[in-house]
């Protein structure tokens, strides 16, 4: 995601990552990896629940975590593109996101 930051930015896409990691853990991750996109913390998986993305008990010591998923949302708050992977090792490619972003004015 960081690598395609410039092309995403050029397409007017703000990238935001969400996981159950605490703000401190995410800050460490961002520093180590040099991430500049917004990282949000959902420690109790409340938003993950609201988006029906809970992978129950799959995290460290049986914690509920998010299954990987990507949503592209336009400025009116409407979902324009969704990627729910069937295999957690297979994620959306930046090209797919950029293609979807093109149709959003």
């Amino acid at each position: 995601m960081e690598k395609s930051r410039d092309s995403l930015k050029a397409a007017g896409v703000r990238a935001v990552a969400i996981s159950i990691d605490s703000p401190e853990e995410s800050r460490k991750l961002a520093q180590e990896q040099g991430y500049t996109f917004t990282i949000l913390s959902d420690p109790n998986a409340e938003v993950i629940q609201r988006y029906d993305l809970v992978h129950a008990g799959a995290g460290e010591s049986g914690k509920d975590i998010a299954r990987p998923a990507e949503f592209l949302i336009d400025s009116s708050g409407t979902v324009r593109w969704v990627n729910l992977t069937e295999n957690y090792m297979v994620r959306a490619r930046p090209e797919q996101v950029l293609e979807a972003a093109k149709s959003i004015k």
């Binding site: 995403l8 990552a17 996981s19 159950i20 990691d21 992978h55 975590i65 949302i73 400025s75 972003a101």
Partner: peptide, 17 residues
């Protein structure tokens, strides 16, 4: 950077554990 975004990409991920 001065311009409102056209869209927001929400990326849910498993976490760094």
């Amino acid at each position: 950077d001065g311009t409102p975004p056209k869209s927001v990409l929400l990326v849910f991920y498993r976490g760094y554990w």
